[in-house]
Design a protein around this nucleic acid. Structure first.
Lengths: 217, 217, 217, 217
DNA sequence: TATGAATGAGTTTTCATTCAT
DNA sequence: AATGAATGAAAACTCATTCAT
């Protein structure tokens, strides 16, 4: 990469390099946002330079969240696109892929758990633009799912979003039970099992319920 | 209350007064934890005194979370205890009550969203003791629900915990879309509707799915 | 010891128990003054009770310093009292005993190094009373030394005080070179050797100089 | 000085400005370390800026101690360099100059008395580097003294260090007797006289003893 | 555009001491 | 006399962000 990013493509590359470094540091870290100086050091830029690309530290991570979700949605889109067999099998394939993604990408839910506090320090205009990209992709994937699953227009989008909410809640309840050292308090064992099987079971139940709803046939 | 709380009951009352003040301030606040000095002022005690009752600021709010959840579980227990009619009606009554509680007690989910970061500054031993109280109450209410809904032992506990996880995820996804001023970004409208109806619908679907699961009959 | 120390002798015993506990804790500690609550716990009294016997924490340790010095002076008095042989042998015996005391009682110089800051928080009247006891004992021992060494009245007191000052300075310069882990920085090796031999040599030189001074014969 | 110290020489100047302000404030103060905010105000910098130049408050004062000692050693070096006359006169000239320095620079021994507690909060690596500079200068001056006084190599370094230790101990014993208001407790008068004459006499005695030691001739 | 020096707000927690019991 | 609950002052340090270079 050139020393000075004058061309637009250089700027975009540099911006992405910052995001990648931030992602990497967060993934390796202990759950807090990495310090700006650490991100800068990891990309090999000066601290001040980061502020030419992002207005606040939180903006970096909000952008990262959107990228991660779009990454996930892209994969989901591919799954629905290539879906075959009866509807239950298609749903199952989607759920399998979802869980696979979470296992490969543990940072997505960890970061999501911070989303609320991040937003306080991000310009609403920037948030809106991020929301837009996210919504566009979600609706597109929803449409693919509608086709793949034979659901009325917009229905899949809603179900997917709710599934993701469920996932998020379950992750927090199971993962946050773990102490600093990663060991769960045994007293909570009767209430929570491990994340992946719980998620699978819960979403199976949820989708079964949704698809058997009176108004859906 | 006496000037110095020497008797055990006075100490307990004082401790609870601190928790009540903390709850009140958090409820009125903007989402961050109130400052210790503000809590102290609200109870009419010196800052240092609070540290005789709680080891860290976070410990206050972790205790508060447990109290709020136990409060909710108590209400749920009453609902299941007084349940009448066919199973779907009983489930519906439970869900209605749950939503009512959340509307009367908006702080519970707001505080829950902070739970993870709070735990970093709370002694694991204290956490364990809190987990214990929570688990005991949850299992007891689960048992009441098992009876009320005719489910095998322990099944309700699991479903209830998952329902609460779903609730938590949905709340974050809908509520966190709102900007500082409380206005939702219209671009997200196709993805998320308002919390209460969404929750009602989602949990209806989930419970229907659960209760129609092959192995449940 | 009785629960309440009403009799004067009980009070004195309790006061001494506090001093002993403080001494023990300081000796085992890392160089800071032990916390009042720790001292209280070590004696088995409540924190507030200590303030019936000492007005401030520092007062405890100022008293301790005086006790330690008087303890040392007592031993020195015995040495001079039992002195035999020619003057150089008597001086040497005194220096040997001095070094022995410091090795048995490392807390005395450690505490002495804090003396200055302690005094800021001790009532001048109390200090004066402590000074008095110290001075009386020092002068008495000085008189014994004058007799033992055949020096004019008051001369030994002066030499002894200066010897102790020398000792204090040497101890600080050698001991303080040590890092947290007790290892000396090798770069300082040409400047300082270990305390005891250095002290012995230095005091030998000093006393030789003093006793060969023109006006002393 | 420029607003931002980018050039190395500007940085060095700024660092020194901080040290000078710290020295001034300590000299005027009552014996405690000045607050960082006061030092910052005195230099006209923000508090945080000081932490770009020193890692802890204590580091500032440890550096100051080294500077003061090197300042003294420099003067001593000049004295030995320009020494004339017989050895006793040369020793006397050195002692005179030493006492003069202490009178012009009372902060050096006041600060030295705090040295031990300062070191607890200073990086050992930094301490080592400071020790190095001090040792180098001390050995160089020692060599000058060896030549000026006709002593075997390294002997003067040792004697000088011990003299300074003596000085330090005497200063603490005489100065610390003074109360807050600067008045000495009369009860101690038989034990301690005022610092400068005592020091002169003591060092005279010590050097006489050293130079008359059997192995020195 | 890049740098990195400068800024300064922000806040928990400790603990010696006091005082109600 | 003893207790231990209550007090509240006190301040170093971080680090996101700005801005001079």
């Amino acid at each position: 990469m050139a020393r000075h990013a004058h061309a637009l493509e250089d700027k975009i590359a540099r911006r992405q390099a910052i995001l990648d470094a931030a992602r990497q540091l967060f993934r390796e870290g202990t759950g807090e946002l990495p310090a700006v100086s650490d991100i800068a050091a990891a990309v090999g830029l000066a601290k001040g330079t980061l502020y030419l690309y992002f207005r606040t530290r939180e903006e970096i991570f909000c952008e990262l969240i959107v990228q991660l979700w779009i990454e996930l949605l892209d994969e989901m889109g591919d799954v629905f696109e290539g879906a075959t067999g009866p509807r239950p099998a298609r749903v199952a394939a989607h759920l399998d892929h979802l869980i696979g993604y979470l296992q490969r990408t543990p940072e997505v839910l960890r970061l999501d758990a911070l989303a609320y506090s991040l937003k306080r320090n991000v310009d609403p205009v920037v948030q809106h633009e991020q929301n837009q990209r996210f919504a566009a992709r979600a609706e597109a994937v929803g449409a693919q799912a509608d086709r793949a699953l034979g659901l009325p227009a917009g229905r899949s989008t809603q179900i997917l979003m709710r599934s993701y909410a469920f996932m998020r809640g379950l992750w927090q309840m199971t993962e946050h039970q773990l102490g600093r050292e990663g060991a769960a308090d045994p007293v909570l064992a009767p209430l929570f099992s491990s994340f992946a099987p719980t998620l699978r079971e819960s979403l199976d139940d949820y989708w079964r319920g949704v698809l058997s709803a009176p108004e859906q046939g």
